[in-house]
Design a protein around this nucleic acid. Structure first.
Lengths: 228, 228
DNA sequence: GTACAATATGACCGGTCGGTCACACCATCT
DNA sequence: AGATGGTGTGACCGACCGGTCATATTGTAC
């Protein structure tokens, strides 16, 4: 954890340090990130660094909380078309957030990806329930709920499917953004969700259809297509 | 490329060097791998290293070809139950190979994963056909063929689905192996494909079912389950 | 044996690394 | 004015890095 001294710093200075750290951690995994590079980018003395942080892991942990908060912010900034989302609309929302995050904060997304790679505890067993839990458990809960609501096929292995969704979530965002190309929406730093153009939306829907067809108890996809 | 001197080395010595390099590259991405560590592990002098390789990238490239060859070897060692595999049996074979590779050569699998992460050209446009191509194009060809054979739904975006299969292939193997736990089959270094036990096979089939349901034009999965 | 080329070696070089520390600076007190 | 304590600083340390090179060792031909 950063020291009290760090939290007392004027906002401007703190931001400059965090910007430098984010740039460094986005370009290099923690293992090969350099303190010297960060302090020179941030315009502070090396000694100051050690007044703010124990070491580079300490700073990295601090940056990770920023990443998580920003991601949460993006998720919550998405428009809610209904207070009670059905299962697959909720999944779409989560994946949309991943794409949006990749567009708005590519550096933070890169840091997140490095972190996911180095964290090699792929899944763990919950000490309370004795249940397997992949990653942060979001998708696990999503699938369990989906089965209860008769939206997800009962034969689906929840933990494996959750793991699959997780790696799709983290892997597909950079791909979609690359395919969108330089047609990044001009919303800039606006608070609103980026308005993706038609072809991008179609591509995204295509992914959703594959996932829904694969997981749903009663997928609507092919019916729609074959009746057309 | 390694020098002629390196290829003239006695097999024993070359193997020891490659073992040391594989251990280093499996534990560290190329960026933070250390020549000093490798030479001391291999028991050779630093000067000798530079008689064999231009630099660490040279050695890393050499190890990568070993990785590719070993993987190919694993793919070809899988039993062929029919000379003409249908679409989804072929996909299963590819994913089985990834699991088998992870079990037999975990270090090589780790090197492969590092490489995939650092290669950030997610997809490229084929200069000849003008077509998008993800990764090595295996899955791209697989899906195209599948559509021609009426096995894959026509509305599936081939390139995106190929990319999805690729990240699933590279991500799911460590997960499945971890879930298998320490029940690694005792086939040791035998040439035969590891005989996975029933629960593992079931888990694997579950994944295949999700993928088939998601991609197939006329998925059989739910019919089977609902008729039971 | 001698001569010559190929190969093996590790001390050494300039740099960068993470981390330390004596000292300078400065606001707030008496 | 002087004293105190929080904050900023960069020269400096030992360790390690990739890479070089003069020298030693070995293999081969005569």
């Amino acid at each position: 954890m950063p020291t009290k001294t760090y939290h007392n710093l004027p906002e401007k200075k703190r931001q400059k340090i965090e910007e430098a750290a984010i740039a460094e951690f986005a370009a290099n995994p923690l293992q090969s990130a350099s303190i010297n590079s960060i302090v020179s980018k941030a315009g502070i003395a090396k000694g100051s660094f050690y007044q703010y942080f124990d070491n580079i892991e300490d700073l990295h942990g601090h940056i990770l909380t920023i990443v998580r908060n920003k991601k949460l912010e993006v998720v919550n900034s998405l428009p809610l078309d209904s207070t009670n989302l059905d299962t697959f609309r909720y999944l779409k929302r989560v994946l949309q957030a991943a794409v949006e995050f990749q567009i708005r904060y590519p550096d933070l997304a890169s840091i997140e990806r490095f972190q996911r790679l180095s964290a090699n505890h792929l899944s763990s067993v919950d000490p309370e329930t004795g249940e397997r839990m992949s990653g942060d458990g979001r998708f696990h809960a999503f699938l369990t709920q989906g089965i209860l609501h008769d939206d997800i096929a009962t034969w689906v292995d929840v933990d494996m499917a959750a793991f699959m969704l997780e790696i799709i979530e983290s892997g597909i965002a950079p791909y979609l953004v690359e395919r969108i190309g330089d047609k990044v929406p001009a919303t800039a730093s606006g608070k609103l969700f980026s308005v993706l153009d038609r072809p991008t939306q179609d591509l995204f829907d295509n992914l959703m259809d594959i996932l829904e067809a694969g997981l749903a108890r009663d997928p609507q996809i092919r019916k729609d297509f074959y009746s057309k």
